[in-house]
């Protein structure tokens, strides 16, 4: 997920707190050491508790699909100032927020806990789209969330190529495990064929 670092006119930079809330990462800002929940989209402790950062639309897709749409894109360099083997996945075979032995409460059984979903929230209503279902249907999926029309574009090779409103404006969405999405959006609906 991508957020603006400008919150109510002040600029912040963010680090990784090492803490989790509902198995999801808590960031902290270097300026006030408040804790920010990525999926709750809010500072949950510290001087900025209750503040909400602005969420910005981004695409989670393949490099191939992104490059095709944005041939002049810049790419984050592996020259990060840190020595890491970027060809290796540190979470191989292991969910990055440490699985569900951390309490997330009761997990709704609509989907299996670790099924990946594309989550969209509009007008206070949340909806989860199972990625496996999206991948099977290349083209444009038209649906409604919170009474508003949305379009999810799936490339011919099954990648999510864009999430837009009826006016064609990109809208924020997130790839998440089902258990994490439903923990933060207990009333979420789930898209079915």
């Amino acid at each position: 997920m991508v957020y603006s670092r400008n919150v109510e006119g002040k600029l912040y930079t963010f680090g990784v707190s090492g803490r989790l809330y509902k198995s999801n990462v808590l960031l902290y800002d270097h300026q006030t050491e408040s804790l920010w929940s990525q999926l709750k989209e809010m500072a949950i402790a510290g001087p900025l508790a209750g503040k909400r950062p602005e969420k910005l639309a981004s695409d989670r897709t393949s490099w191939k699909a992104w490059k095709k749409e944005h041939p002049r894109t810049l790419i984050l360099s592996t020259d990060t100032g840190h020595v890491r083997d970027y060809m290796v996945d540190p979470y191989e075979g292991y969910y990055r927020t440490l699985g569900i032995w951390f309490p997330v409460g009761k997990v709704r059984t609509d989907l299996s806990p670790k099924e990946m979903v594309l989550g969209i929230e509009l007008s206070g209503k949340a909806k989860a789209y199972p990625i496996s279902l999206l991948r099977k249907n290349p083209g444009v999926l038209r649906d409604k969330v919170g009474g508003k029309g949305i379009e999810i574009e799936i490339s011919p090779d099954g990648e999510v190529a864009g999430v837009r409103d009826e006016q064609g404006q990109a809208i924020p969405s997130i790839f998440s495990y089902w258990f994490a999405w439903q923990a933060f959006h207990p009333e979420t609906s789930v898209y079915k064929d």
Binding site: G18, L35, I44, A45, G46
Partner: peptide
Amino acid sequence: FKLDNAIVPKEEILSG
């Protein structure tokens, strides 16, 4: 981290 004013239950903020 100061959690006194946490707006979620403090016991749900865990070390990762």
